[in-house]
Design a protein around this nucleic acid. Structure first.
Lengths: 145, 145
DNA sequence: CTAGCTGCAAAGCGTTTGCACGATG
DNA sequence: CATCGTGCAAACGCTTTGCAGCTAG
Protein backbone atom coordinates (compact mmCIF):
# COMPACT_ATOMS: atom_id res chain seq x y z
CA UNK A 1 0.00 0.00 0.00
CA UNK A 2 2.06 2.92 1.27
CA UNK A 3 1.00 6.40 0.30
CA UNK A 4 -2.28 5.35 -1.25
CA UNK A 5 -3.68 3.81 1.90
CA UNK A 6 -4.63 7.14 3.39
CA UNK A 7 -6.62 8.03 0.34
CA UNK A 8 -8.25 4.63 0.28
CA UNK A 9 -9.39 5.29 3.82
CA UNK A 10 -10.69 8.70 2.85
CA UNK A 11 -12.71 7.07 0.10
CA UNK A 12 -14.20 4.57 2.51
CA UNK A 13 -15.10 7.23 5.02
CA UNK A 14 -16.94 9.27 2.46
CA UNK A 15 -19.00 6.24 1.52
CA UNK A 16 -17.11 5.21 -1.61
CA UNK A 17 -15.46 1.87 -2.20
CA UNK A 18 -11.72 1.80 -2.80
CA UNK A 19 -11.95 -0.47 -5.83
CA UNK A 20 -8.87 -1.55 -7.78
CA UNK A 21 -9.89 0.69 -10.67
CA UNK A 22 -10.22 3.68 -8.41
CA UNK A 23 -6.87 3.04 -6.83
CA UNK A 24 -5.27 2.75 -10.25
CA UNK A 25 -6.84 6.00 -11.37
CA UNK A 26 -5.81 7.60 -8.12
CA UNK A 27 -2.28 6.38 -8.54
CA UNK A 28 -2.09 7.57 -12.13
CA UNK A 29 -3.10 11.08 -11.17
CA UNK A 30 -1.10 11.07 -7.97
CA UNK A 31 2.17 10.03 -9.54
CA UNK A 32 1.97 12.09 -12.69
CA UNK A 33 3.78 15.38 -12.31
CA UNK A 34 1.69 18.14 -13.84
CA UNK A 35 -1.48 17.59 -15.79
CA UNK A 36 -3.15 14.42 -16.90
CA UNK A 37 -5.97 13.97 -19.34
CA UNK A 38 -8.52 11.19 -19.19
CA UNK A 39 -7.01 9.61 -22.28
CA UNK A 40 -3.57 9.58 -20.65
CA UNK A 41 -4.95 7.97 -17.54
CA UNK A 42 -6.68 5.29 -19.59
CA UNK A 43 -3.55 4.56 -21.62
CA UNK A 44 -1.42 4.30 -18.53
CA UNK A 45 -3.78 1.92 -16.76
CA UNK A 46 -4.32 -0.17 -19.88
CA UNK A 47 -0.73 -1.36 -19.63
CA UNK A 48 -1.59 -3.36 -16.55
CA UNK A 49 -5.36 -3.62 -16.90
CA UNK A 50 -6.64 -3.42 -20.48
CA UNK A 51 -10.34 -3.35 -19.61
CA UNK A 52 -10.41 0.06 -18.02
CA UNK A 53 -13.11 2.24 -19.51
CA UNK A 54 -13.06 6.03 -19.94
CA UNK A 55 -16.46 6.30 -18.31
CA UNK A 56 -15.07 4.73 -15.16
CA UNK A 57 -12.29 7.28 -15.18
CA UNK A 58 -14.73 10.12 -15.58
CA UNK A 59 -16.89 8.79 -12.79
CA UNK A 60 -13.95 8.31 -10.46
CA UNK A 61 -12.55 11.74 -11.23
CA UNK A 62 -15.94 13.22 -10.39
CA UNK A 63 -15.72 11.57 -6.98
CA UNK A 64 -12.16 12.69 -6.38
CA UNK A 65 -13.02 16.17 -7.52
CA UNK A 66 -15.91 16.30 -5.10
CA UNK A 67 -13.56 15.18 -2.34
CA UNK A 68 -11.20 17.95 -3.36
CA UNK A 69 -8.38 15.51 -4.00
CA UNK A 70 -7.94 16.39 -7.64
CA UNK A 71 -8.55 19.57 -9.58
CA UNK A 72 -10.05 19.90 -13.01
CA UNK A 73 -8.92 22.68 -15.29
CA UNK A 74 -9.95 23.77 -18.73
CA UNK A 75 -6.79 24.90 -20.46
CA UNK A 76 -8.59 26.02 -23.58
CA UNK A 77 -7.96 22.73 -25.34
CA UNK A 78 -10.73 20.29 -26.13
CA UNK A 79 -10.23 18.07 -23.12
CA UNK A 80 -9.99 18.96 -19.46
CA UNK A 81 -6.80 18.32 -17.49
CA UNK A 82 -6.65 16.90 -14.00
CA UNK A 83 -4.09 17.27 -11.29
CA UNK A 84 -3.45 16.03 -7.79
CA UNK A 85 -4.11 18.69 -5.17
CA UNK A 86 -1.83 19.15 -2.22
CA UNK A 87 1.50 19.72 -3.81
CA UNK A 88 2.93 23.18 -4.32
CA UNK A 89 0.20 25.31 -5.71
CA UNK A 90 0.87 26.85 -9.01
CA UNK A 91 -0.91 28.33 -11.97
CA UNK A 92 -0.38 28.56 -15.66
CA UNK A 93 0.06 31.40 -18.09
CA UNK A 94 -1.21 30.22 -21.43
CA UNK A 95 -0.21 32.23 -24.47
CA UNK A 96 -3.08 32.66 -26.88
CA UNK A 97 -0.72 33.11 -29.82
CA UNK A 98 1.89 30.36 -29.51
CA UNK A 99 -0.09 28.28 -27.02
CA UNK A 100 2.98 27.98 -24.84
CA UNK A 101 2.53 27.42 -21.12
CA UNK A 102 4.49 29.22 -18.42
CA UNK A 103 4.43 28.38 -14.74
CA UNK A 104 3.31 30.94 -12.21
CA UNK A 105 4.04 30.58 -8.53
CA UNK A 106 1.13 30.76 -6.18
CA UNK A 107 2.47 33.74 -4.26
CA UNK A 108 1.16 36.15 -6.87
CA UNK A 109 -2.39 35.25 -6.02
CA UNK A 110 -2.04 34.96 -2.27
CA UNK A 111 -3.45 38.38 -1.54
CA UNK A 112 -6.29 38.02 -3.97
CA UNK A 113 -7.92 35.06 -2.30
CA UNK A 114 -7.67 36.85 1.05
CA UNK A 115 -9.39 39.91 -0.42
CA UNK A 116 -12.12 37.84 -1.94
CA UNK A 117 -12.70 36.01 1.31
CA UNK A 118 -12.96 39.26 3.29
CA UNK A 119 -15.14 41.16 0.88
CA UNK A 120 -17.40 38.42 -0.37
CA UNK A 121 -17.09 35.57 2.09
CA UNK A 122 -16.20 33.49 -0.93
CA UNK A 123 -13.69 30.68 -0.54
CA UNK A 124 -11.91 30.63 -3.88
CA UNK A 125 -10.35 27.46 -5.26
CA UNK A 126 -6.96 28.84 -6.07
CA UNK A 127 -5.45 25.41 -6.43
CA UNK A 128 -4.79 25.65 -10.05
CA UNK A 129 -5.54 28.45 -12.40
CA UNK A 130 -5.36 28.93 -16.12
CA UNK A 131 -4.60 32.51 -17.12
CA UNK A 132 -4.75 33.40 -20.78
CA UNK A 133 -2.82 36.19 -22.46
CA UNK A 134 0.21 36.89 -24.63
CA UNK A 135 3.65 35.71 -23.63
CA UNK A 136 6.81 37.81 -23.73
CA UNK A 137 8.11 36.35 -26.97
CA UNK A 138 4.90 36.75 -28.92
CA UNK A 139 4.33 40.21 -27.50
CA UNK A 140 7.75 41.35 -28.72
CA UNK A 141 7.24 39.80 -32.12
CA UNK A 142 3.93 41.61 -32.45
CA UNK A 143 5.64 44.91 -31.63
CA UNK A 144 8.20 44.43 -34.36
CA UNK A 145 5.60 44.32 -37.07
CA UNK B 1 -25.20 52.84 -38.25
CA UNK B 2 -24.28 54.83 -35.14
CA UNK B 3 -22.17 52.98 -32.61
CA UNK B 4 -21.56 49.99 -34.85
CA UNK B 5 -19.88 51.95 -37.62
CA UNK B 6 -16.56 52.12 -35.83
CA UNK B 7 -16.48 48.37 -35.46
CA UNK B 8 -17.50 47.86 -39.06
CA UNK B 9 -14.51 49.98 -40.03
CA UNK B 10 -12.25 47.95 -37.77
CA UNK B 11 -13.47 44.80 -39.49
CA UNK B 12 -12.71 46.26 -42.89
CA UNK B 13 -9.26 47.38 -41.90
CA UNK B 14 -8.35 43.95 -40.63
CA UNK B 15 -9.35 42.42 -43.93
CA UNK B 16 -12.79 41.18 -42.96
CA UNK B 17 -16.06 42.12 -44.59
CA UNK B 18 -18.71 43.79 -42.46
CA UNK B 19 -21.54 41.56 -43.65
CA UNK B 20 -25.09 41.91 -42.33
CA UNK B 21 -24.73 38.68 -40.38
CA UNK B 22 -21.55 39.87 -38.72
CA UNK B 23 -23.12 43.18 -37.80
CA UNK B 24 -26.10 41.40 -36.33
CA UNK B 25 -23.87 39.12 -34.27
CA UNK B 26 -21.81 42.09 -33.25
CA UNK B 27 -24.91 43.97 -32.21
CA UNK B 28 -26.27 41.02 -30.27
CA UNK B 29 -23.08 40.72 -28.23
CA UNK B 30 -22.59 44.45 -27.95
CA UNK B 31 -26.02 45.20 -26.62
CA UNK B 32 -26.41 42.27 -24.30
CA UNK B 33 -25.40 43.13 -20.76
CA UNK B 34 -23.36 40.28 -19.30
CA UNK B 35 -22.79 36.99 -21.00
CA UNK B 36 -24.21 35.59 -24.20
CA UNK B 37 -24.08 32.06 -25.47
CA UNK B 38 -24.05 31.10 -29.12
CA UNK B 39 -27.57 29.73 -28.79
CA UNK B 40 -28.79 33.00 -27.34
CA UNK B 41 -27.21 34.95 -30.17
CA UNK B 42 -28.81 32.69 -32.74
CA UNK B 43 -32.24 32.94 -31.12
CA UNK B 44 -32.00 36.70 -30.92
CA UNK B 45 -31.00 37.10 -34.55
CA UNK B 46 -33.57 34.59 -35.78
CA UNK B 47 -36.31 37.03 -34.83
CA UNK B 48 -35.30 39.30 -37.66
CA UNK B 49 -33.35 36.88 -39.83
CA UNK B 50 -34.38 33.24 -39.48
CA UNK B 51 -31.61 31.80 -41.65
CA UNK B 52 -28.72 32.55 -39.33
CA UNK B 53 -26.60 29.46 -38.68
CA UNK B 54 -24.67 28.62 -35.52
CA UNK B 55 -21.57 27.94 -37.58
CA UNK B 56 -21.64 31.50 -38.85
CA UNK B 57 -21.88 32.75 -35.30
CA UNK B 58 -18.93 30.60 -34.25
CA UNK B 59 -16.87 31.78 -37.19
CA UNK B 60 -17.70 35.41 -36.54
CA UNK B 61 -16.98 35.13 -32.85
CA UNK B 62 -13.60 33.65 -33.71
CA UNK B 63 -12.85 36.75 -35.77
CA UNK B 64 -14.06 39.13 -33.07
CA UNK B 65 -12.10 37.21 -30.48
CA UNK B 66 -8.96 37.48 -32.55
CA UNK B 67 -9.55 41.21 -32.83
CA UNK B 68 -9.95 41.36 -29.05
CA UNK B 69 -13.44 42.81 -29.33
CA UNK B 70 -15.15 40.02 -27.49
CA UNK B 71 -13.98 37.64 -24.80
CA UNK B 72 -14.73 33.96 -24.51
CA UNK B 73 -15.03 32.37 -21.08
CA UNK B 74 -15.62 28.85 -19.91
CA UNK B 75 -17.86 29.13 -16.87
CA UNK B 76 -17.80 25.44 -16.17
CA UNK B 77 -21.04 24.86 -18.03
CA UNK B 78 -21.16 22.97 -21.28
CA UNK B 79 -21.09 25.97 -23.55
CA UNK B 80 -18.78 28.94 -23.63
CA UNK B 81 -20.04 32.44 -22.90
CA UNK B 82 -19.07 35.54 -24.81
CA UNK B 83 -18.97 39.15 -23.79
CA UNK B 84 -18.19 42.50 -25.29
CA UNK B 85 -14.84 43.86 -24.14
CA UNK B 86 -14.36 47.49 -23.22
CA UNK B 87 -16.93 48.01 -20.58
CA UNK B 88 -16.10 47.93 -16.90
CA UNK B 89 -13.94 44.92 -16.32
CA UNK B 90 -15.27 42.42 -13.90
CA UNK B 91 -14.92 38.80 -12.96
CA UNK B 92 -17.13 36.11 -11.59
CA UNK B 93 -17.08 34.00 -8.47
CA UNK B 94 -18.82 30.75 -9.30
CA UNK B 95 -19.92 28.58 -6.41
CA UNK B 96 -19.21 24.94 -7.06
CA UNK B 97 -22.00 23.87 -4.70
CA UNK B 98 -25.00 26.03 -5.56
CA UNK B 99 -23.63 27.20 -8.91
CA UNK B 100 -24.50 30.77 -8.02
CA UNK B 101 -22.51 33.57 -9.62
CA UNK B 102 -21.21 36.61 -7.75
CA UNK B 103 -19.67 39.65 -9.35
CA UNK B 104 -16.13 40.65 -8.51
CA UNK B 105 -14.81 44.11 -9.28
CA UNK B 106 -11.66 44.27 -11.31
CA UNK B 107 -9.71 46.13 -8.62
CA UNK B 108 -8.92 42.92 -6.79
CA UNK B 109 -6.84 41.69 -9.67
CA UNK B 110 -5.17 44.96 -10.60
CA UNK B 111 -1.95 44.21 -8.83
CA UNK B 112 -1.73 40.67 -10.05
CA UNK B 113 -1.55 41.51 -13.73
CA UNK B 114 1.16 44.07 -12.95
CA UNK B 115 3.17 41.43 -11.09
CA UNK B 116 2.83 38.94 -13.88
CA UNK B 117 3.88 41.50 -16.44
CA UNK B 118 6.99 42.45 -14.46
CA UNK B 119 8.11 38.97 -13.53
CA UNK B 120 7.22 37.08 -16.66
CA UNK B 121 6.71 39.66 -19.39
CA UNK B 122 3.33 38.06 -19.82
CA UNK B 123 0.40 40.24 -20.82
CA UNK B 124 -2.54 38.60 -19.08
CA UNK B 125 -6.06 38.86 -20.46
CA UNK B 126 -7.77 39.96 -17.31
CA UNK B 127 -10.84 41.05 -19.17
CA UNK B 128 -13.07 38.49 -17.71
CA UNK B 129 -12.28 35.77 -15.29
CA UNK B 130 -14.13 32.80 -13.89
CA UNK B 131 -13.08 31.93 -10.37
CA UNK B 132 -14.47 28.77 -8.82
CA UNK B 133 -14.95 28.11 -5.15
CA UNK B 134 -17.58 28.00 -2.42
CA UNK B 135 -19.82 30.97 -1.72
CA UNK B 136 -20.58 32.39 1.71
CA UNK B 137 -23.99 30.76 2.02
CA UNK B 138 -22.87 27.28 1.06
CA UNK B 139 -19.75 27.57 3.20
CA UNK B 140 -21.85 28.39 6.27
CA UNK B 141 -24.27 25.59 5.59
CA UNK B 142 -21.41 23.15 5.31
CA UNK B 143 -20.09 24.33 8.69
CA UNK B 144 -23.41 23.67 10.36
CA UNK B 145 -23.37 20.00 9.49
C1' DC C 1 -28.80 -9.85 0.11
C1' DT C 2 -28.36 -5.06 -1.00
C1' DA C 3 -25.94 -1.49 -2.56
C1' DG C 4 -22.40 0.17 -5.19
C1' DC C 5 -19.17 -0.15 -9.19
C1' DT C 6 -17.80 -1.65 -13.69
C1' DG C 7 -17.60 -2.26 -18.75
C1' DC C 8 -19.98 -1.82 -22.82
C1' DA C 9 -22.54 0.57 -26.07
C1' DA C 10 -25.05 4.26 -27.44
C1' DA C 11 -26.51 8.74 -27.12
C1' DG C 12 -25.77 13.73 -26.21
C1' DC C 13 -23.87 17.99 -26.77
C1' DG C 14 -21.29 21.99 -28.28
C1' DT C 15 -18.32 22.87 -31.84
C1' DT C 16 -15.88 22.34 -36.35
C1' DT C 17 -15.50 21.36 -41.18
C1' DG C 18 -16.50 20.34 -46.33
C1' DC C 19 -18.87 22.00 -49.83
C1' DA C 20 -21.53 24.50 -53.24
C1' DC C 21 -23.94 28.71 -53.69
C1' DG C 22 -24.17 33.59 -53.21
C1' DA C 23 -22.44 38.16 -52.18
C1' DT C 24 -18.88 41.57 -52.10
C1' DG C 25 -15.21 44.60 -53.47
C1' DC D 1 -14.08 37.86 -61.70
C1' DA D 2 -11.69 36.42 -57.82
C1' DT D 3 -12.23 36.33 -53.11
C1' DC D 4 -14.52 35.88 -49.06
C1' DG D 5 -18.65 34.61 -46.37
C1' DT D 6 -22.79 31.94 -45.84
C1' DG D 7 -26.07 28.09 -44.92
C1' DC D 8 -26.67 23.40 -44.81
C1' DA D 9 -25.46 19.00 -43.38
C1' DA D 10 -22.45 15.94 -41.73
C1' DA D 11 -18.67 14.83 -38.88
C1' DC D 12 -16.07 15.25 -34.72
C1' DG D 13 -14.46 14.48 -29.98
C1' DC D 14 -15.21 14.76 -25.24
C1' DT D 15 -18.31 13.50 -21.94
C1' DT D 16 -22.53 11.38 -20.03
C1' DT D 17 -25.98 7.88 -19.43
C1' DG D 18 -28.74 3.33 -19.47
C1' DC D 19 -28.19 -1.07 -18.53
C1' DA D 20 -26.95 -5.80 -17.25
C1' DG D 21 -23.65 -8.24 -14.76
C1' DC D 22 -20.35 -8.43 -11.16
C1' DT D 23 -18.32 -7.42 -6.61
C1' DA D 24 -17.93 -6.23 -2.08
C1' DG D 25 -19.73 -5.13 2.66
Amino acid sequence: MSCESATALALKESGHRPTPQRLMILSAVRHTPGHVTVVQIVEQIKESYPFIDPSTVYRTLAVLKEMRLVSETDMGAAEAVYEWIGQARHHHLICRMCEGVTLLEDSHLDGVSAHIRQNHGFEADFDHFAIFGVCKKCGEEADNE
